[in-house]
Design a protein around this nucleic acid. Structure first.
Lengths: 231, 231
DNA sequence: GCTATACTTTGAACAGGTTCAGAAAAAGAA
DNA sequence: TTCTTTTTCTGAACCTGTTCAAAGTATAGC
């Protein structure tokens, strides 16, 4: 899994990625050609493909790498406040800050999201580790926070919020307002709504709603393939 | 707008579309090449492109055409029952039946959904007519039904449900279970949940939640571009 | 050092979406 | 009918992602 440091490959991979990200930022994803990337690295086209099976894999790699950063930032977040909304907002905003220079790349990945069998989809079996990690971060944010939520819902809350996060990211990617101000408004609004809804979930009146909600999350989770499926 | 009947173009377009759909069904979207389509129509590649600017436009055209059928089916639906859940379920199921032979094509369109500036995205300015029509159908289903919902929410309900519909369709596209049984379960569950949530929205306790919900829908609506934007 | 093995790189191709200058056919004007 | 304009079609490219056999280079065991 982890390529030995002694292997030349690691350095070349890193170099290609770095170069590619620069070019993506400069010309955009579509207009940057694999030939450009290879040439900028003083490599042949084939060599570039030796290290990255597809152009999209470059993007995926970038995401994988931002993950580590986010994990470490998470401790800062949980230390700063116990408030659920504050924490979750900080978590999302950090992701946005991280990806800000590469907003377009986000939508490159999102494009794959709709076909869950696509290895690059955030819902695919192949990206499960990344997905689990992201859910893990949310779980960290939940633990020891002031969320009030119906007990049967609690075990599924992180997964639900991950789904919520996907939605917010989709909005963010498409937000043309300067500095994505609308995304911030959306964040505040939706977090408030979420908070109230979760509070409401503790009312006896809401038992049936909660049950359905849990089952729905399970269904969605069940669709995301875990092992190899269809030929 | 409406091409004169005398124009040869209309007939050729129709022929190309029909042929293409057949090939898509037989070989799948990716494996069907524009060259195959052209050849099957006894046309040159260039001619095919004269009628359809891109391969995806073929899919879009297909969708546009299923719209008419759905509109007429809607009267059947509203006549059959006044129950909100029953009607909405029927609406969605009809769409599924219609698209069943072309499930793969659905995901072809969905792929474009993530970039709202893409003309083929269901959120784009270009597809606004189709979107408005779909929302119109939902509105029809709501009118004269037994939905109970907080008054301030009511004017936005159809738009909200359209968003809901997008989610269900995404699920359906990725549902590998035979005959998409899970989608049916999801439908029943989520409709029940929706129903209860809408009922709950009439409680005074929910006023703030409702307000946020409305504003969120407005924000999302506001992102979907209406005129020409950016260069 | 020397060979066997594994890893990298090359260069040339392929495939399929898309474009385009100009030919052909159809429609209109006279 | 004949000439002009518009619509439709053709054939040959172009571009870019991807593949692959063969060649070059490093590494390890001896």
């Amino acid at each position: 899994m982890t390529p030995k440091v002694t292997k030349k490959s690691a350095a070349t991979r890193a170099h290609i990625l770095e170069t590619a990200l620069g070019l993506f930022q400069e010309h955009g994803f579509e207009k940057t050609t694999m030939r450009m990337i290879a040439e900028a690295c003083d490599l042949s086209l084939g060599a570039a493909y030796y290290h990255f099976k597809t152009k999209e894999e470059l993007v995926l790699q970038f995401y994988a790498e931002t993950g580590a950063e986010a994990r470490s930032h998470n401790t800062t977040i949980t230390a700063a406040s116990k408030d659920f909304k504050t924490r979750l907002k900080a978590l999302l905003q950090f992701k946005f800050t991280q990806m800000e220079p590469f907003r377009e790349l986000a939508s490159v990945l999102a494009r794959q999201a709709t076909d869950w069998r696509n290895p690059l989809s955030p819902f695919s079996a192949e990206t499960r580790p990344m997905r689990d990690e992201a859910i893990g971060l949310i779980e960290e944010v939940l633990e020891g926070s002031n969320v009030k939520v119906s007990a049967p819902l609690r075990p599924h809350l992180a997964k639900m919020l991950w789904l919520y996060q996907m939605g917010v990211i989709l909005f963010w990617m498409n937000d043309p307002s300067p500095e994505q101000r609308r995304t911030e408004e959306l964040l505040d609004l939706s977090l408030a709504l979420l908070h109230r809804l979760l509070q409401a979930s503790t009312l006896p009146f809401m038992r049936r709603v909660n049950q359905s909600a849990v089952r729905i999350v399970e269904l969605v989770e069940g669709l995301a393939p875990t092992e190899g499926e269809e030929p």
